[in-house]
């Protein structure tokens, strides 16, 4: 009986660790995709001033 209980606990532990691990993996993949900044974020940090160019074009054409 004791043996069966320990086996069940071991399997449960295995399942818990696997599930937690998968969740963590998903978080990591989310983080890595989040580490690539969006175009808007890039332009906020390094403005290209090309909106002004587009406006100037709009005005003279």
């Amino acid at each position: 009986m004791k043996i069966a209980a320990m086996l069940v606990i071991a399997i449960l532990l295995f399942a818990i660790v696997m599930v937690t691990g998968c969740v963590e993996s998903k978080d990591v993949s989310k983080q890595s995709s989040a580490s690539e900044p969006s175009d808007e974020e890039v332009l906020a940090q390094y403005p290209d001033d090309l909106d002004a160019a587009l406006e100037e074009l709009e005005m003279v054409e």
Partner: peptide, 17 residues
């Protein structure tokens, strides 16, 4: 079992930046 699960979970992330 616990060790295998731990190693698999820890290694699963990968593909970082």
């Amino acid at each position: 079992l616990f060790s295998i699960a731990f190693v698999l979970a820890a290694g699963g992330g990968g593909g970082g930046s």
